[in-house]
Design a binder for these strands. Structure first.
Length: 306
DNA sequence: TCCCAGGTCCTAC
DNA sequence: GTAGGACCTGGG
């Protein structure tokens, strides 16, 4: 089963943007991307999506693809809402076709808990190991084995040593806590679909709700943006903080408001992300995605030429 | 061998 | 409210 879109879409930019961790480049004749999303094994080549296999009877594949890849978001329209800024405009141009995904909320939340104090290759590796150890195998004729992301039940019942063997380190207790809460029904992630961004934060940040553990403002914003499509969410990590300091200090902090020193304490995170939502507008999350992509590629380039 | 990574938690002031 | 340290582990 396959689906072709006419929407502007770039798989390389999208899968390398740090929002999802289970997509890998395929080489050889079938060059493109392959990945697992919500129990489906999917191949992506340019604007064509092919369902290779699935753990269940999957419903309408076209509907799934349009939703998961946000193909109905009008990038052009979104871009016109942004403030004029040279750095942002060059990012939008350079990464044309980069789209936000709508990932499974549980998978996304656990993935970003895994991201705490880890680099991207290490995040991918530990998620893959968790899927391999706890996830359902997806029948596939391709070379290699593929696994769905584990269910809340599996991760909630996993032991410390089982989780540690996946390379998650000290995050095991966060993962187990959250997965148990979801499995037992205390933490109902579906609720957030109908909630606002600020309600979502109240619900997900550990200190505010007590329903999660290991979820601070950054992980929460990633969850709200990358799985719930709350487009005003603006996750601030070290890269985005650096980006704002280098390229947006003047436009964002030129008025009477208190200046920002560049540090990221809980309080300054709140101030800064509020400021970013005001400055970039209701699609701030899309701006964040493009800025992150540009910052990372520049850093990679300067490292390799250093 | 050493430093650091898409942060969060905990403790002490 | 905030500063400082600890935290598993693998990649570079």
């Amino acid at each position: 089963m396959s689906y072709r879109t006419k929407a502007v879409f770039d798989p390389s930019f999208t899968f390398q943007s740090g929002q999802a961790f289970r997509w890998a480049r395929q080489f050889g004749e079938q060059s493109g991307w392959i990945g697992v999303a919500q129990g489906k094994l999917i191949a992506v080549r340019k604007n064509c999506f092919e369902l290779l296999s699935s753990v269940d009877e999957s419903g309408n594949f076209e509907k799934f693809v349009r939703q998961y890849f946000s193909l109905d978001d009008s990038l052009q329209k979104i871009h016109t809402t942004f403030p004029r800024n040279r750095y942002l405009e060059s990012a939008l141009l350079q990464y044309s076709g980069l789209r936000l995904l709508r990932q499974d909320p549980f998978e996304c939340l656990i993935s970003f808990v895994c991201s705490i104090n880890k680099n991207i290759p290490a995040i991918k590796a530990c998620i893959e190991q968790m899927a391999r150890k706890f996830g359902e195998r997806i029948p596939a004729k391709l070379g290699g084995e593929f696994f769905a992301f584990p269910t809340p039940e599996k991760l909630g019942k996993a032991t410390k040593s089982d989780l540690m063997s996946c390379g998650v380190g000290f995050r095991w207790k966060y993962i187990k806590f959250i997965a148990s809460k979801v499995h037992e029904g205390e933490l109902d992630l579906r609720i957030l679909n109908g909630e606002s961004y600020s309600e979502g934060r109240r619900f997900l940040i550990s200190k505010l709700s007590g329903l999660t553990y290991g979820v601070g403002p950054k992980v929460c914003d990633c969850s709200l943006l990358y799985s719930y499509h709350k487009l005003e969410a603006f996750p601030i990590d070290v890269w985005i903080a650096r980006c704002l300091k280098q390229h947006f200090l003047k436009p964002m902090f030129s008025d009477k408001q208190e200046p920002w020193t560049g540090s990221l304490t809980p309080a300054s995170y709140e101030r800064l992300s509020k400021r970013a939502r005001e400055y970039f507008g209701k699609y701030a999350g899309y701006a964040q995605l493009y800025l992150y992509a540009k910052m990372r590629s520049e850093a990679t380039r300067s490292r390799s030429t250093a």
